[in-house]
Simulated scan of single mutants.
Amino acid sequence: MKNLSILLISAFVILLSSCTKVVDLKLNEPESKVAVDGLISNRAGESFIKLAYTKGYLSSDEPETIIDAQVSVRDNRGNLILFTASGNDGLYLPPTDFVGEVGKTYTLDVQYEGGSLSAESTMNDTVSGNNVNVIKADVTDPYLDAGYHLLATIKKYQEEDNYYKAEIFINGVKQMTTASDIIAFDDLMFEAGEELEARLYTWAETLEDDEKPQMGDVVTLQLISISEETYKYLIALSETPMQGGLFGKTPANVPSNIEGGLGWFQASSYNISGEVVVQE
């Protein structure tokens, strides 16, 4: 009887094994779209438009750049600025002396093989910060985590709600290199004339030495005035896991102001709000 049970179990296992079937799932690749990263700046040499096709999530190929498009920007006074391709990386640049102006609305127009793109953005007034400082906190600090903290005071300059982006440089090298590093914030909880005491960035004590400020380093804070729409875009971008960024695999659930494509076009005024030498 025992031998019979063993034979029955063996036969059952063989039967199950013989029923195994490999299913090869065919996933549909998303349609490739044109992604735009565009900036009109109030400083010479900083405006640009970048164009590339998005890639499917499962693709391991590098994104294909667009180098033969016709790219132009027109302001609300009728001035036309032509952007020309610079190299083979999909980057388009305006004349070297072009400078965006606060209060102007800029309209992007892109004509490429197979379609066209457009977008619009208005440059808000410049914002500045004061009392820029970097302080070091240790494990005994009751309020701050151990590490270096970048602090600044920002004054709300108008009744309307304002939106900001912060960029940080150490010895002239920009520190924000990925979407998760984006610093964007608002002043909705403050009245005009009030000051925001902002802790903008923290370098944890556990970071490697080359990943955080050292004594004698010069830390520069640059504040950028942005629109509410740009603020929402940056927040979504910072919270969305992305493979290869905007020009890599197709991003999901990220807002866009590009008609006919993906990405973002913004006109922003920049201001260096302060520099500080790191002290122990």
Results as ranks from 00 to 15, higher is better:
Pro241Cys: 05
Glu160Ile: 12
Ile154Leu: 07
His149Arg: 01
Ile135Pro: 01
Tyr231Asp: 06
Tyr157Asn: 15
Lys174Tyr: 11
Leu150Ser: 00
Asp210Val: 09
Val219Thr: 05
Tyr157Cys: 14
Trp203Asn: 00
Ser225Lys: 03
Glu194Gly: 11
Leu207Ala: 05
Pro255Gln: 09
Ala179Lys: 09
Ile168Glu: 05
Pro255Asp: 08
Thr206Asp: 15
Pro142Val: 04
Lys165Arg: 15
Leu188Glu: 14
Asp187Leu: 08
Ala236Cys: 06
Asp141Leu: 00
Ala192Asn: 12
Ile170Lys: 07
Ile182His: 02
Asp217Ala: 06
Leu234Tyr: 10
Ile170Pro: 03
Val218Ile: 10
Thr240Ser: 11
Tyr201Gln: 10
Thr122Tyr: 02
Asn133Ala: 07
Ile168Thr: 09
Tyr201Lys: 11
Gln214Ser: 12
Ile154Glu: 01
Thr177Arg: 09
Glu239Gly: 09
Glu229Ser: 13
Pro251Gly: 04
Val218Met: 06
Ala204Gln: 12
Asn133Cys: 03
Pro213Ser: 03
Thr153Trp: 13
Asp186Arg: 10
Asp181Ile: 05
Gly216Cys: 03
Tyr143Ala: 13
Tyr148Met: 01
Ala192Cys: 11
Ile182Val: 08
Pro241Val: 07
Thr178Ile: 14
Glu229Met: 12
Leu223Val: 10
Gln158Thr: 14
Val254Ala: 07
Thr250Leu: 15
Leu246Met: 13
Tyr163Val: 08
Pro241Leu: 05
Asp181Asn: 09
Thr240Asn: 08
Thr250Lys: 12
Lys165Pro: 12
Glu120Leu: 03
Met123Arg: 05
Glu167Ser: 15
Ile170Asn: 08
Thr178Tyr: 13
Glu239Trp: 06
Pro142Thr: 04
Tyr164Arg: 06
Ala146Lys: 00
Met242Asn: 11
Asn133Thr: 02
Asp209Leu: 10
Val173Lys: 12
Thr122Trp: 01
Val132Ser: 02
Phe169Val: 08
Ala236Phe: 03
Glu229Thr: 15
Ala198Glu: 11
Tyr201Pro: 05
Thr220Met: 07
Ile224Cys: 04
Ser225Ile: 06
Glu120Phe: 01
Gly248Tyr: 03
Leu223Tyr: 00
Gln175Met: 09
Leu188Trp: 12
Glu211Leu: 11
Asp217Arg: 05
Asp186Cys: 10
